[in-house]
Computed example of a mutant assay.
Amino acid sequence: MKEKGMTTITLKKINREKVYQYIYQQKETSKLQIVQDLQMGLSTVSQNLNELENDGLISRNGYFESTGGRKAQIIKIVEDFRISIGLGILKDMFHIVAVNLYGDAVATETIELPYENSDAYYTALAANVELFIQKNHYAPEKIEGISIATQGIISPDGTAVTYGDIMGNANMQLSDFSSRLPYPCHLEHDSKAAADLELWNHPQLDSALVFLLNPNLGGAIITGHEVHQGNHMRSGLIEHICIDPNGPKCYCGNHGCLETYCSANALKAASGMPVKEFFNLLHQTHALNLTQIWRDYLDHLAFAIRNLNLVIDSPVIISGYLAPYFQEADMQYLLSKINESSLFQMDESQLLVGNHGQYTPAIGAALYYIKEFLTPAVS
C-alpha cells in the first residue's frame, strides 16, 4: 500500500521517530500533549507509545498535577537505554566515562596507565574498560560504542593518529582498540571532542573559540554549528601560535608557543607545585608570589584571546582541566585584560566556562555515539 509515494511501513517509522524525539526534547510529557503538539491521532500516538515502552525506550511513571480532570501520566525516555563509553587518553593515565542519552556523565574513573605503543598497553586498557563496564552493571547490549579522545592529530578517515609528539602516539591505530573491544570504536582529537561537548552544552552557539586548558593546551573552532576540522584536520591548533619567539622551548621544537605559557603544565612549572596544591594555596593564603604567577598566566591567556577574537569574532569558552578553578574574580580580571588594549570590547556574556574539568574530552568523545543513536534513521 502506498500513501503519497510513501509506504505504510516508512510512515510508521517516521511517526515512531517523531514521538520518540518529541519525548526526548520535552524531558517529561503526556499522551495528550503529544497528540496536540504533533497533531497526530490518539490511536496513532497510543500505538507508538506502547511499542516504544515494550522496546524499553520510554517509561510511564508517576502523574502530573491535576488540572481539573484525570491526572495525566508522565512519559519520559529511558535515559540509560543506551550508554556510550568515552576515553580520554593522556601520557600517564586515561579517563573513562559512561554517558547516557542526555549526554550526562553517569560514571567516571581515572586509571593510572602510562601510554606506550605496545600490545601490553592496549590489552591493559581494554581490560580496564571491560572492568569499568562490569562494575557499573551495564549489559553489553546497552553499550552503543566506545569513543577515544587522544592528544594528536587524527587522519581524515579517523583510523590513525598522524601527529603525536606529546605522547609519542603517532603510530596509534583505531584497530588497536577495536580489535580488543567487542563494541564499535571511534577515534578523535581530544580538543575536537572537548568542542563537541561545549557545543552540546551551548546549542545556541553558531560559532565559538574553545581553549582546552589541559596539562597540554588545546584548542578548537566551532563555526556553522560544527567543529571545524580544516583540510588536514589541523584547525584550531592554537597551542602552537607563537607569542614570543624568544620564549621557552615547546615540545614541537619552536620557542614561545602559547603551550609554554597557558597549558596546565606551564602553570605547574611556574609555581613548582601540582595544580591542585597551587590553587588551594592561592585561594587560602593569597600570597603575592602565587597571585603574580596566576595573573601572569591570565595575562598571556588574555593576549591570545584578544588576538584570536580578531580572526574569529565569536564567544570564547574556557574548558578542560583548569576550567573549574576559575573563580568569578578570575573571569573579571581576564575580561578586563582582554579589553585593556582591544579595539573592540568583549562583554562578559561572550566569555564562558566549561564545567566538566579533566573529563571534558572523554565526555565529548562519548557524545559521538549518543548523537549517532539519536539521529533519525528515517526522514
Rank of each mutant, 00 (worst) to 15 (best):
178 S>L: 07
97 V>R: 02
326 F>A: 07
142 K>H: 07
192 K>D: 00
114 P>G: 05
271 S>G: 08
211 F>G: 00
248 P>W: 05
22 Y>W: 13
280 N>Y: 15
118 S>H: 09
48 N>V: 02
62 G>I: 07
283 H>L: 13
242 C>G: 09
322 L>P: 02
46 S>I: 00
116 E>A: 09
271 S>C: 08
68 G>D: 11
177 F>S: 04
379 S>A: 10
201 N>D: 06
181 L>N: 03
178 S>M: 07
363 I>Q: 03
347 D>S: 07
48 N>L: 03
365 A>W: 03
283 H>T: 15
10 T>D: 08
168 G>S: 01
309 N>M: 11
296 D>Y: 08
102 Y>A: 04
326 F>V: 03
119 D>M: 11
337 K>H: 08
364 G>Y: 01
230 G>H: 01
181 L>T: 05
297 Y>H: 05
341 S>G: 13
378 V>W: 08
288 L>N: 13
225 H>N: 09
295 R>T: 09
223 T>P: 08
214 N>V: 05
121 Y>V: 01
2 K>D: 07
71 K>V: 10
11 L>Q: 10
242 C>S: 13
163 Y>V: 00
15 N>I: 10
322 L>A: 02
266 A>L: 10
245 P>M: 07
366 A>Q: 03
273 M>L: 07
71 K>H: 14
170 A>F: 01
279 F>Q: 01
68 G>E: 15
317 I>F: 00
349 S>H: 10
284 Q>W: 07
19 V>D: 04
313 D>E: 11
140 P>I: 15
345 Q>L: 14
75 I>E: 00
371 K>F: 11
127 A>H: 12
286 H>C: 08
2 K>H: 14
232 H>L: 06
312 I>A: 10
132 F>H: 08
181 L>K: 04
207 S>L: 01
157 D>N: 06
196 D>I: 12
379 S>E: 13
33 Q>L: 09
161 V>L: 00
325 Y>S: 05
346 M>L: 12
222 I>D: 10
286 H>Y: 14
123 T>I: 05
284 Q>F: 14
82 R>Y: 11
195 A>T: 03
117 N>V: 05
378 V>F: 13
275 V>T: 14
87 L>Q: 02
23 I>M: 05
215 P>N: 10
161 V>D: 00
111 I>K: 08
155 S>E: 02
305 I>W: 01
120 A>N: 11
293 I>K: 01
213 L>G: 01
4 K>Q: 10
352 L>Q: 04
179 S>L: 14
306 R>I: 00
33 Q>Y: 06
337 K>T: 14
54 N>D: 12
377 A>R: 12
291 T>V: 09
97 V>N: 04
48 N>H: 15
287 A>S: 10
132 F>N: 05
322 L>K: 03
103 G>Q: 05
85 I>K: 03
63 Y>H: 11
176 D>M: 06
330 D>V: 08
79 E>I: 09
170 A>H: 04
45 V>T: 02
247 G>S: 07
355 N>I: 15
215 P>T: 14
208 A>C: 14
309 N>S: 13
277 E>G: 02
379 S>R: 08
18 K>T: 14
166 I>V: 15
359 Y>Q: 03
171 N>F: 03
296 D>F: 09
139 A>Y: 15
109 E>Y: 12
115 Y>V: 04
180 R>Y: 05
161 V>E: 00
38 L>C: 06
28 E>T: 10
176 D>R: 08
362 A>E: 02
368 Y>Q: 09
